[in-house]
Write a protein that binds this DNA or RNA. Structure first.
Lengths: 158, 158
DNA sequence: TTTCGTTTGACCATTTTTGACTTTATGACC
DNA sequence: GGTCATAAAGTCAAAAATGGTCAAACGAAA
């Protein structure tokens, strides 16, 4: 599917996937040239798709020898990610943030695609029909999910 | 035999019939152009003929690169599983009945053990903290789950 | 002739793309 | 050490590209 931002996102994630270091360094101008687009398009992609919420960190420098450095923040090894996520979730959770978190859990393979679909389904905007505080409920549901996927009895693998 | 809405409906269902993926993606504007009609006509067709009750799910995105994605909800061998389940669930659902249904879905291998655990987590008695009608919410959540597991785009076909 | 599903169009919302202008770093030259 | 040219990257708002909503007009069937 053709929209530039998505292609650039894919391109960068591919690079990140191929590198062992967990980060890539490149130049904005060069990338813009590769995709024949305005340099600010790159900023757009970075600010919409490589946010902390989605598990990325972007550092940069201007001037001669300037660069962009995109770091992938892995979920920390077994156990603690639940804590980290809980912090990220808080007491209230908008649909938008919820989607990002779920997407990240899928990318990190904490949840399967089907599980993600199930969870998206139960955290949708429809919650508002049942409570005046859908965001509180959403936060609670997602935390419950995290608690569940961490249960030892459900993760037979090693 | 010729009203526009019906033709568009047929066109889309043909497309869905031909694809193995269980979904089609297209653009509203393009489709409207093919049928030389107002773009909103497409929305009319989608909201009247591609509803969950009729076995479809529609997702969309606006803006550059926007699209419509129509997903088929498959029916299982014994006919309309989703429909049957909805009857079984109704508008309200006690924790007890909910547990039984989930257990049955696990036995039938409609849901994995992990998925069941997730769903039990989000349909627990804690719902009462957020709404005066936990049973209504529980019913809605479980229906949402059933709808999701029927999505043809999530079920690796074999 | 009333009703109800269909069709259209005017207006709204969201996401992407572009470009003009700004800020910061480096290095050469004085 | 200043000054300045050059080489990046950043910001922001306007424009473009989609899809969504809603109410009024239309028209076929009851």
């Amino acid at each position: 599917m053709a929209n530039l931002a998505d292609k650039i996102e894919r391109y960068l994630k591919d690079m990140l996937g191929k590198t062992a270091e967990g980060f890539v360094v490149l130049q904005r101008g060069t990338l813009a040239h590769i995709f024949s687009c305005a340099p600010s398009q790159i900023n757009y992609v970075l600010t919409t798709r490589f946010t902390v919420e989605r598990g990325y960190l972007v550092e940069s420098r201007r001037g001669g020898g300037g660069y962009l450095r995109i770091v992938r923040l892995g979920l920390d090894a077994e156990g603690n990610f639940r804590h980290v996520m809980s912090e990220l979730i808080g007491d209230e959770l908008t649909l938008d943030r919820c989607s990002h978190i779920i997407a990240r859990l899928e990318e990190e393979e904490v949840l399967t695609k089907r599980e993600c679909a199930l969870i998206k389904g139960v955290t949708s905007e429809k919650l508002a029909v049942f409570t005046p505080h859908p965001r509180r409920l959403r936060a609670a549901l997602l935390k419950e999910v995290l608690t569940t996927v961490c249960r030892d009895d459900l993760n037979p693998d090693e």
